[in-house]
Simulated assay, not measured.
Amino acid sequence: MRIGSFESEASLTVTPVGLLAVGGLMAAILLSSAAIVRAARQRIAPPDLPRLP
């Protein structure tokens, strides 16, 4: 990777257990975001306000 005068190099090794862990994290993120969207779409009844005398 080179940006202007900055140059960088990287390597990565992934094991099957690491892939399983990444897959589990992605599944958890997707499930939690789906639950948040569902909760945000629910209608909430307005609170009963006290009547003024």
Results as ranks from 00 to 15, higher is better:
Leu31Val: 12
Phe6Glu: 10
Ala10Trp: 03
Arg41Phe: 08
Leu19Asn: 04
Glu9Thr: 09
Arg38Glu: 10
Gly18Asn: 04
Pro16Gly: 02
Leu19Lys: 10
Val37Pro: 00
Leu31Glu: 01
Ser11Met: 02
Pro16Ala: 01
Gly4Arg: 01
Leu49His: 04
Pro47Cys: 10
Pro50Leu: 03
Ala35Asp: 03
Glu7Trp: 06
Ser8Pro: 00
Gln42Lys: 12
Glu7Pro: 00
Ala45Met: 05
Val22His: 03
Leu30Val: 14
Gln42Glu: 13
Ala45Ser: 07
Leu25Lys: 06
Ala35Thr: 03
Gly18Thr: 07
Thr13Arg: 14
Pro50Tyr: 04
Val37Phe: 14
Ser11His: 02
Leu25Trp: 09
Ala34Leu: 12
Pro47Ala: 15
Pro53Val: 02
Ala10His: 02
Val22Gly: 06
Gly24Ile: 09
Leu52Gln: 08
Val14Asp: 02
Leu49Tyr: 06
Ser5Ile: 07
Pro46Cys: 05
Thr13Gly: 08
Arg51Pro: 01
Gly24His: 01
Ala45Lys: 07
Ala40Leu: 11
Ser33Gln: 13
Ser32Lys: 12
Gly24Trp: 03
Ala35Met: 10
Arg51Tyr: 01
Ser33Pro: 00
Val22Phe: 08
Glu9Asp: 10
Ser32Cys: 10
Leu31Arg: 05
Met26Pro: 00
Pro53Phe: 04
Thr13Tyr: 13
Arg43Ile: 09
Leu30Cys: 07
Val22Asn: 00
Gly24Arg: 03
Leu20Gly: 09
Pro47Thr: 11
Val17Gln: 15
Val17Asp: 13
Ala28Ile: 07
Leu52Met: 09
Ala40Arg: 09
Ile29Gly: 04
Ser8Phe: 15
Val22Cys: 05
Ala10Arg: 02
Thr13Ile: 14
Ser8Trp: 14
Met1Asp: 11
Ala27Phe: 11
Arg41Met: 12
Ala35His: 04
Ala45Pro: 05
Ala27Glu: 02
Pro47Leu: 15
Ile29Met: 02
Ile29Ser: 03
Leu19Tyr: 10
